[in-house]
Design a binder for these strands. Sequence first.
DNA 1: GCAAAAGTGTTCTCACTACACCCATGT
DNA 2: ACATGGGTGTAGTGAGAACACTTTTGC
Lengths: 248, 248
Amino acid sequence: MKTQVIPNLSVDCVIFGFDGLELNVLLKERTLKDDKGNFIINDHTLTGHHVLKGETAEQAAQRILKDVTGFDNIFLNQFHTFSETDRLSSPKDQIWIKYLKQNTGLNIADHVISIAFYALVDTKKFRPDQQHQNVAWYPVKNIPELGFDHKRIMEKALESLRYHAKHEPIVFELLPEKFTLTELQNAIEAIFDIKLDKRNFRRKIQQVKYIIPLDEKQHGVAHKPANLFIFSWDVYERTKKEKLILPF
Amino acid sequence: MKTQVIPNLSVDCVIFGFDGLELNVLLKERTLKDDKGNFIINDHTLTGHHVLKGETAEQAAQRILKDVTGFDNIFLNQFHTFSETDRLSSPKDQIWIKYLKQNTGLNIADHVISIAFYALVDTKKFRPDQQHQNVAWYPVKNIPELGFDHKRIMEKALESLRYHAKHEPIVFELLPEKFTLTELQNAIEAIFDIKLDKRNFRRKIQQVKYIIPLDEKQHGVAHKPANLFIFSWDVYERTKKEKLILPF
DNA sequence: GCAAAAGTGTTCTCACTACACCCATGT
DNA sequence: ACATGGGTGTAGTGAGAACACTTTTGC
């Protein structure tokens, strides 16, 4: 029994990772050579796949993430659906689609609607190597050329991540379970591309009851070891209160 | 020549309207009677339609809004795509789908993915009457029973509207071009379901350069006529600056 | 002992809160 | 003249911004 795809529906995942210093995105190499070994295509794409029959978009996204990283239960957020009719129509993308059809039998429709998600992971948890389908981390500030409309998708993902990160404590999805305040500050600075004042930042964090200091310090660092903290979703849910923000 | 639909893709529009006092949603009646004239189905749905071949989701949404209200260029925001496999599987919805197939030839697939938009309009601009496909305004605070998964879609739309309204000056899409500060305050209060202090609100608005007082007052009101204001998207774009908001 | 990051306090400014009365118009 | 919403000021409080030095560890 063959699993059937819904031919005009796909899911693309923008996988963000934080390495303690920089915000990165996981990209897949896309290369195609002619008979003489010269590159016809040599760029990158997001990780994506078709939606299968009987599957929701969310399930498809989790499946893709599992395929790529080997992990379940990655934080995922659906942020936009791209339905432009010319999404796949650039000459390069057409060559690629033709190649896939000839070599893998995968049939990509003319007009594919893509439901896009972003995922947040701690880069240290997933270090891609050669088994990993030619994927690698690239810093958000220095993204290589992307195929299809993936540059657009990537930009919208970053915008949505920022939007979302202002309202809910999702930064912690980028950090290890136990983290230092400097790591937290770096993560926020990386997401928003800003610089914060260390003392003001720490004063603010002290007031937050769901960021809990542990009786535990860093080990093996060549400087004064930092205190470790954990984020408690439980305490967050119990103590959160909506603050009204007006756009002006 | 028949226009072709993409059978497994639809667009649903949550049309919000503001009447100066309350936030409303435009809903369509859905009724079906048996031979004896008893209601088999008597509830409401959002306005929606299939996506046509060669059309983007955004174009489909604009087309639906034009069909329903007669207006072009309505403010639209795509907020989520619903792909649950049981979206249309309740007994009532199945009866309705069967009825549509028999009576209109419209064939609705088992698994329809719906790209959902919300729209913002000034209620006074569009007052539905009997020509208008049995649509009517219902206050958001008192929504009748909805078919399919439209209650869920409606709730998510409201959540997204609130989210969005915190960051960008989209409230003005709900107001007439010239509005009073009380109307503006009422709109914000209706969106967020809160009460604001009049004096503090007005002090805040005074600082905002893109909400511009006119040399013009209300007419025909049985009280001191209010000053009228306009919103300038131009001034907004020129003067806006991102304020950093942390979720804690 | 030196390199490297951790950790810590004070002052100033400004935005948010709470609160009550007179004003201009239509009927 | 009266009903209706329009329009206004002040004092108190608290959060955010700017800013530099000492501490603790590994090597």
